[in-house]
Design a protein around this nucleic acid. Structure first.
Lengths: 159, 159
DNA sequence: CTCCAAATGTTACTTTATAACACTTAATCT
DNA sequence: AGATTAAGTGTTATAAAGTAACATTTGGAG
């Protein structure tokens, strides 16, 4: 495990990097960065699967030994969504860190109803086709929610 | 306005028809049909746009002069979803009657954030492509949530 | 170092949804 | 038509998800 001194202690290099990237994205887009946002985002990166706002609240409360309140968590979540570095899984009222924050913000989520894990499809073709179809009906699409529920590879094999 | 005696009074022929169809679908799939379900479904058909469970509750309460409770409404909604004749718009916590209950149950919804109206895209190609892409990652999809938010034709023109 | 819009802390509340259990009824079978 | 019974409803209470309002604090630009 490499030694990092440029950000707060984290046993995982990727996360430390992601936190730096997040901060940069925030600054560039005129948002501030803050302790709460760091903690919320870091926690989301660690769990690496969708969690509800209240689950997240409990995790942050325990990990950082603070009495964080729903409103604070929701505010951080809103900000992180604004930045495009996390996403809400609408069909689960849950939140998840994006796989590659630096590009493309129309997600296609694969939600395993068995283990709760999440995966993404990266197919711009589908996104494009959707926009096109919508446009043909005179609809200007601004945001796409696309979530497939089912069983992931691992769960399907195990039966 | 045509005279109908075969179902409870309704000023709209399509709805009377839909109620009959709904009842048939329910019976065929082993579900029962009931007064509450009739009222909930009928109300959804009338409003013809997404409404929340509690909005629906109020409408049913007023229209049928009864003191209907949340649990009852949610139970009816669950049943109607099971029958495939209504759908939940996950990103709005709202429910809407399906356009053609008798076929195809993977919807693509166009939700206008300006007027609240809803439209659907009928493109099996996209549905198929999604399943295919998911399958390539070993994911077996059972349910698809696909909602585009934006501005509908009418609202876009008006500016 | 100052400043102040942006963010947080806190309290209270609203909206959305479900659990549990007694009671009622739709539809099937005689 | 009347009995039967699983499916559905009524009711109470409560959980889960999300927001409003306002006083206080702070990140980061100048």
């Amino acid at each position: 495990m490499t030694d990092h001194t440029h950000h707060e202690a984290c046993t995982n290099c990727t996360h430390t990097h992601s936190l730096g990237v997040a901060q940069d994205i925030a600054r560039k887009s005129g948002h501030r960065w803050s302790e709460t946002r760091t903690q919320v985002y870091h926690t989301l990166l660690m769990v690496d699967k969708p969690v509800t706002a209240y689950e997240l609240l409990d995790m942050v409360a325990e990990k950082y030994e603070r009495d964080v309140k729903p409103a604070s968590v929701y505010r951080s979540l809103d900000a992180l969504i604004d930045l495009g570095i996390i996403a809400k899984i609408e069909s689960a009222n849950a939140f998840v860190a994006c796989q590659n924050p630096e590009c493309e913000h129309q997600h296609i989520f694969l939600v395993c109803d068995h283990c709760g894990q999440i995966d993404e499809i990266s197919d711009h073709g589908i996104n494009r086709q959707l926009l096109k179809q919508a446009a043909e009906q005179g609809f200007v699409a601004r945001k796409q929610i696309l979530e497939l529920h089912g069983e992931c590879k691992a769960c399907h094999i195990e039966g």
